[in-house]
């Protein structure tokens, strides 16, 4: 059952086969995340070019998920990196979930987002 469900989520594959995404454009398996993957995901989501600030956020989000098995609320990002909410939203115009989470290789977050 669970396996069948996983299969339905696996939909599109990048041409060179390096990026496997779910239906919502999130990385299918976080283990396959790399800086190159983040750059490719940024291109697909019209974000960037990636600055140092972008990378700080992406790396923080990735590390936070590895530790907590959950994406960080924006306040954790802002406080840890000394960025305002406004600044973070400017860096990732499509939002934390659709921007920073995606680029950091996180799976799609739950809830109506």
């Amino acid at each position: 059952m669970a396996e069948a469900l996983q299969q339905t989520k696996r939909s599109s594959r990048c041409e060179d086969g390096t990026l496997e995404l779910d239906n919502d454009g999130f990385l299918f398996q976080m283990e396959h995340w790399s800086r190159a993957a983040a750059i490719e995901l940024a291109k697909r989501n019209d974000i960037g070019p990636l600055s140092d600030e972008h990378w700080q956020v992406i790396e923080f989000v990735h590390a936070y998920y590895e530790q907590h098995r959950q994406g960080p609320p924006i306040v954790r990002v802002g406080k840890a990196l000394g960025l305002s909410a406004k600044r973070i939203c400017e860096l990732f115009p499509c939002g934390m979930a659709r921007g920073a989470y995606r680029l950091a290789g996180l799976p799609r977050p739950s809830g109506c987002v």
């Binding site: 959950q70 609320p73 306040v75 954790r76 406004k86 739950s110 809830g111 987002v113």
Partner: peptide, 20 residues
């Protein structure tokens, strides 16, 4: 809450916005 926001995260967020 439906997105698993912890109480301390929520309070911190409101205070953060308040300060800004």
């Amino acid at each position: 809450n439906q997105m698993g926001v912890l109480k301390e995260d929520y309070i911190d967020t409101v205070e953060w916005m308040s300060d800004e």
